[in-house]
């Protein structure tokens, strides 16, 4: 049979393309233009790669980048196992399942800066439940003075806010496993660990990759929560990339260097996302091939 290739459907995406051009491509091109110039009011001077040299060798930005990676990997290392554990413990059906689902989802519905304010009050030493409680136990807890306290608090806050996402994804992944697998495991007298290791975890891989990708990108761009909770302090111990960028671009009006910085930031996110995208696509392809081979 001769298959006719019809590419006219591409015209249907044209409106979307125009929209994306105005919302993403043209601004991005402008940022690239900014990054090679020194802009003072209405006049602009071409400076070539100077801002890139400056940005890449700026110790403040390098440490913000290191902090950012440390933060993203820490929260992933906590949220992924915790999310899986919660999903495994959640009731499978009945009203308990609905009730737990609603309770688990609640933190996801709170806006970012509200999360920051909530935790700001929660961790205050004089009136906050957590801050006051910890101080009563004898530890001089203070997120505005002690960098470790601030770090731990931000990580707990993010875990509280976003672990439900991983838990929900895993829960839906677990529900999609056919009962026959569990029956087979029971016949083989598989232990709980074996069921988890050889049935549940492999079946969760796809949702976990999506969850990790979402959480990585989200946490890599985190801005409002630490900004409200600690303001980036004490010192700059919790100043992450986006806040450093905002200070440069809006606070100091250093448009050139912050444009160069934005491009580097963008390239990091682009590279990580692409690696994840390829991984997801390859996994699905492998699965399709396996299914075709097995049938």
């Amino acid at each position: 049979m001769n298959k006719v290739e019809n590419n006219k459907a591409w015209f249907l995406v044209l409106p979307m393309l125009v929209l994306v051009a105005f919302s993403a491509i043209i601004p991005l091109m402008t940022v690239v233009n900014y990054s090679v110039q020194d802009i003072l009011g209405r006049s602009a001077f071409f400076v070539g790669s100077e801002w890139f040299v400056q940005t890449l060798n700026d110790s403040r930005l390098q440490s913000a980048l290191m902090r950012q990676f440390a933060f993203s990997f820490t929260i992933l290392a906590i949220q992924v196992p915790l999310g899986i554990a919660i999903a495994l413990l959640m009731p499978k059906k009945g009203w308990q399942a609905s009730a737990v689902l609603i309770l688990i989802t609640l933190p996801l519905l709170v806006p970012w800066n509200v999360v920051g304010s909530m935790w700001q009050i929660f961790t205050r030493g004089d009136i906050g439940l957590m801050g006051y409680g910890i101080r009563q136990l004898g530890y001089p807890y203070n997120i505005t003075r002690n960098a470790t306290d601030a770090w731990v608090t931000i990580i707990i806050m993010d875990v509280w806010h976003w672990t439900p996402l991983i838990a929900l994804l895993c829960y839906s992944g677990l529900r999609a496993i056919p009962e026959a697998y569990y029956q087979a495991a029971r016949i083989d007298r598989a232990s709980k660990w074996a069921v988890f290791r050889y049935i549940q975890l492999p079946k969760l891989t796809n949702v976990l990759v999506i969850g990790v990708l979402l959480r990585f990108m989200h946490s890599f761009m985190i801005y409002a929560e630490p900004f409200v909770l600690t303001g980036g302090g004490p010192g700059s111990s919790t100043t992450f990339l986006s806040q450093t960028l905002a200070t440069m671009a809006i606070g100091q009006q250093d448009l050139g260097p912050s444009a160069a910085f934005s491009i580097i930031y963008f390239l990091i996110i682009l590279a990580v996302s692409y690696v994840f995208y390829v991984t997801i696509m390859n996994m699905q392809k492998d699965k399709a091939e396996n299914n075709a081979g097995g049938a």
């Binding site: 091109m29 233009n33 900014y34 070539g48």
Partner: peptide
């Protein structure tokens, strides 16, 4: 003008 084009970019 607002996009501040330069020849290299």
């Amino acid at each position: 003008q607002w996009m501040v084009w330069t020849l290299p970019t």
